[in-house]
Amino acid sequence: MTRMNDYRLQRDAFGRLVLTDADGESHAGVVPVRAFPIAAPDQGIALVDPHGHELAWIDRLTDLPDELRALVEAELASREFMPVISRIVSVSSFATPSTWRVKTDHGETDFVLKGEEDIRRLALPALLIADSHGIHYLIHDRYALDHHSRKILDRFL
């Protein structure tokens, strides 16, 4: 597996990431993909070509020079959208489907939970909730939520 210090990364005129390898070969349209997006988001990032083939590996984002790290982080941010729930304000019903009103790190929003199976347990105490449109919401620590939120959540778990 080739490490990033053997490569150069930049944006082309179309805003795509271009990876130039040690042999001088350019690969346009590379995409960073996190190996562990929730458990270790800043560790283990692959740079893959448009066909999904791994071209380079980043052990830790913090090991990259500032300019390179900024490019990778910007690309990741533009591709990933996973609001983090800080509070469950209300639910329309304790039967599914139900509409949830939640506060997230991106503001307050409503979403529809189709079924209890759309709440997945991750490494304790984290949860991942998928709404009816396929947007995933993260709860880092369900035990750290306020009492009202935990009470609602417990009805669905």
Rank of each mutant, 00 (worst) to 15 (best):
T109Q: 14
A74W: 03
A95F: 06
V89S: 01
K103Q: 13
D118F: 03
A70G: 12
L68D: 15
D110R: 05
D105V: 08
A74E: 12
R87H: 05
E116V: 15
M82D: 00
G107W: 04
F81G: 01
D118R: 04
L64S: 05
D66V: 14
T104S: 06
S78M: 09
L71E: 01
D66M: 14
L76D: 10
T109D: 06
V112S: 05
T109F: 02
A95C: 07
D63W: 14
F81L: 14
D118G: 04
K103N: 11
I88Y: 02
V72M: 06
I119L: 08
T99F: 01
L71A: 04
R87K: 14
L76R: 03
I119K: 10
R79A: 10
D110M: 05
K114W: 03
D105H: 13
S86E: 02
L71T: 08
T104V: 11
V72K: 00
S92G: 14
K103C: 07
S86Y: 03
F81Y: 14
D105T: 13
E75P: 04
G115C: 08
A70P: 05
T96W: 04
T109W: 01
I88G: 00
T99H: 07
T104H: 04
F81I: 06
P65S: 07
P83S: 09
W100Q: 08
T109L: 10
W100E: 10
V102I: 14
G107I: 06
T104P: 00
W100P: 04
S90I: 03
D118N: 13
L68F: 10
L76V: 08
E108T: 15
D110E: 14
R87W: 01
E80I: 15
R87L: 03
D110C: 11
V72L: 06
T109Y: 01
R101H: 11
